[in-house]
Write a protein that binds this DNA or RNA. Structure first.
Lengths: 191, 191
DNA sequence: ATCTGAAGCGGAGGGCTCTCCGTTTCCTTC
DNA sequence: GAAGGAAACGGAGAGCCCTCCGCTTCAGAT
């Protein structure tokens, strides 16, 4: 959103990233409220530093969330470079499910953020569908993916896989395989 | 809602009422967050007592709010007993504006409550329109008020008077007088 | 009147949040 | 490679929230 992702000084940037990494783990693991000084200590910085980077608890949670979305969407280009489009898509969806599993742990923390900034979700969903669209288009161009898939629909389907992942971990993988089969060029029309 | 308005023991009820009265003043006056122990101290009770009656800050704010609505609406019968219906209506509307002025001071505090219990407003609005309806019907029966007034419309109009009261105190009074004139039997139709 | 146990009270204490400012670290400039 | 100033750091400390439990008070029973 703003340039706050990259503070000027190197130590500041390092600290910021360390805090985000630690906060992601802390917020994902426990459903109770994690004390902010615990996060600061785990990141090896003073509490004052945490508060300078993230003035409120919500700011921290939101930053963690945005950061994860960004990493996920930013991985698209690398995946497309290293893998055939269909495998890239498959891998990306897998990462999504993994990611979203951690988001589940954060859901309590996210609650409060949504109230503070209700635009957050629609915004990140835009980023997600953009990423999906890029993957799909690439697959379509290569003749590997059928051309009539709506990124939004696919995102919804992936949310289904996420729900399945909650019940048993390997269900999600199988669901994604199923999804991939349906997406491939030559599969019967979806309507 | 529940019987929590009237605890069994006399001391408990006394404390509860004292807390509500003090909290109303405290929350109305300052827009910053009032420490709960300050309220407890001002009410002459321990902080533990406050927390027993109102387990959270929101519970306290909500109780204050409900209590005021209740007092306002509960005054209707007395007003109708002591005054002619049109004057009762006028007086009641005046009290509404006074009351709502204090509510304005509480608005910051109410913010958080609305999130926790979004049914609160529609519920109290129902109480308000009921009260208004009673006053109107009484006036209509006495031939003092025109029969085609919708309580809901009137409530909205009163909210207008409230806004006016914000800018200058006596504006509200004049607006209410105007409103009363319009409501009287024999005034031209509103459409 | 007295007794009794249940209801209610108070406030110390522990944990968390957030601010504030003296100290440290970085980057730029020369 | 040294100096200077800005940026960032750390953590003590003050304030607030809320829990917990020993003590007090009330109200019905005798």
């Amino acid at each position: 959103m703003n340039g706050s992702d990259s503070p000027r000084r190197a130590d500041a940037r390092r600290n910021r990233e360390k805090l985000l990494a630690v906060a992601l783990r802390a917020l994902s693991q426990s459903d109770e409220d994690v004390p902010l000084d615990a996060i600061a200590k785990a990141a090896g910085v003073g509490i004052g530093t945490l508060y300078r980077h993230f003035p409120t608890r919500e700011a921290l949670v939101e930053a963690v969330y945005r950061n994860e979305v960004e990493r996920l969407c930013g991985a698209v280009d690398n995946l497309l470079r290293d893998l055939p489009p269909d495998q890239a898509l498959r891998e990306w969806m897998k990462r999504f499910v993994d990611y979203v599993a951690t988001k589940r742990g954060m859901s309590a923390a996210l609650q409060s953020v949504v109230q503070a900034d209700s635009g957050l979700f629609s915004e990140t969903r835009g980023r997600m569908t953009d990423a999906l669209k890029k993957l799909l288009d690439s697959g379509i161009g290569a003749g590997l993916i059928r051309p009539d898939v709506d990124p939004d629909d696919l995102l919804r389907a992936m949310r289904g896989a996420w729900l399945a992942a909650d019940e048993q971990a390997d269900h999600a993988g199988r669901l994604l395989d199923l999804l991939m089969d349906g997406l491939r060029y030559g599969a019967p029309g979806k309507a």
